[in-house]
């Protein structure tokens, strides 16, 4: 006797339930029920009518493990189709990541350092930020963490570029259409709230482990959110009087975007870019679980093998890298702000 027998009896489904199921006891619990006295359990032991509990009463109801299996099989069934579709689209990501990693790890250290410092100078025009960058890079080299740090930086660079490349147009489209905004915001919320491990799972099955796009996609999905949000917000916040002036002088939608909206939204978009960079860094550490190279691998080793020193040193380097990226992008942002307002 199972708890919910009465339910199916009441509905007159007993025959349907028993049809096609053998009377033989199937599980240990069933066996125990057979042997034990058949008195009803006390009311506080009554189980929730879950799939398993209902299955006890009626063999036609599926068990939870079958549903789980179904999910897995369903996913595996669509996997080949998804793969044929996603493979060619995402292949360039692998190439970009591999290429950038190759450059950052194979080029002589002084060339990399010099080019980073030059780029930082052009982006920020700030001596102190360049000096801080120099200090960080020298520290990485001093403690022999230069190569993993550069691997991390390379991955961040590629993922940030990809995020900007897709995020800015999506943000623009969102700012133009309220309906699109309403439908995309839940997806962005989902991407931001999902624990990052959760979306590593389907990705592992979709892309062969060892291919760099696996972690590239994971990082990009996580990091693209702020730049989309802030592009959308930035364009919506553009002074409507100026937009109206653009309209009144007969600007086409493209001219309005290029001559009015994007320039005025630029500070917000740059703030989004800063967030995107920082989130890439956070994710590239976690993605070391799915073969992302760099400092994250050392942290992971520290955790796995309880090598406290290794983990701590990698941690210090990550913090320094984070501060370096944040300072640099913020300095670039404030330079744009200054250029925009140009107050004497």
């Amino acid at each position: 006797m199972a708890t919910y027998d009465w339910f199916f009896n009441m509905l007159g489904l007993r025959d349907w339930c028993d049809a096609g199921t053998s009377k033989a006891p199937m599980s240990m619990a069933d066996l125990l029920n057979k042997t034990g006295n058949a008195e009803a359990p006390p009311f506080y032991d009554v189980p929730f009518p879950s799939l398993d509990a209902l299955n006890d009463a009626c063999g036609q109801i599926t068990q939870t493990r079958d549903v789980v299996k179904g999910l897995e099989e369903g996913f595996l069934a669509v996997r080949p189709a998804l793969r044929t579709m996603l493979d060619p689209i995402t292949q360039p990501l692998s190439w970009m990541l591999d290429g950038t990693l190759y450059v950052f790890t194979e080029a002589p250290w002084f060339l990399i350092m010099a080019s980073i410092l030059i780029v930082v100078w052009y982006a920020t025009r700030s001596k102190s930020v360049v000096l801080f960058n120099l200090f960080c890079l020298s520290f990485f080299s001093l403690v022999d963490h230069f190569e993993p740090a550069m691997e991390t930086l390379a991955v961040i660079l590629v993922c940030t570029v990809i995020s900007a490349l897709f995020g800015v147009p999506i943000g623009i489209a969102m700012s133009k259409s309220n309906r699109l905004q309403k439908s995309i915001i839940p997806i962005l919320d989902l991407l931001q709230t999902l624990p990052t491990f959760v979306y590593l799972i389907p990705l592992i099955f979709l892309f062969p482990i060892g291919e760099s796009r696996l972690y590239g996609i994971a990082i990009t999905l996580y990091a693209i959110v702020p730049i989309i949000r802030l592009t959308d917000l930035g364009i919506r916040l553009v002074d409507q009087d100026v937009v109206e002036a653009g309209n009144a002088f007969g600007m086409s939608p493209g001219q309005k975007l290029g001559k009015v909206e994007m320039p005025l939204a630029l500070p917000n978009i740059m703030a989004g870019l800063n967030q995107t960079i920082m989130m890439s860094l956070a994710m590239v550490v976690i993605a070391s679980m799915v073969t992302a190279p760099g400092l994250g691998v050392l942290v992971l080793r520290g955790i796995r093998n309880l090598e406290l020193g290794v983990g701590l040193m990698a941690g210090i380097c990550i913090v320094l890298l984070a501060v370096m990226l944040d300072r640099t992008s913020k300095a670039a942002l404030s330079r744009i702000d200054r250029a925009k307002s140009k107050t004497s």
């Binding site: 009087d241 100026v242 009144a248 009015v260 925009k340 140009k342």
Partner: peptide, 21 residues
């Protein structure tokens, strides 16, 4: 309409609405 706005009418605004950049 865009052409008319470009060639027939210009507008001056209360809050100036100049491009700050």
């Amino acid at each position: 309409l865009r052409q008319m706005r470009q060639e027939k009418m210009s507008m001056v605004f209360q809050k100036f609405a100049l491009l700050p950049h």
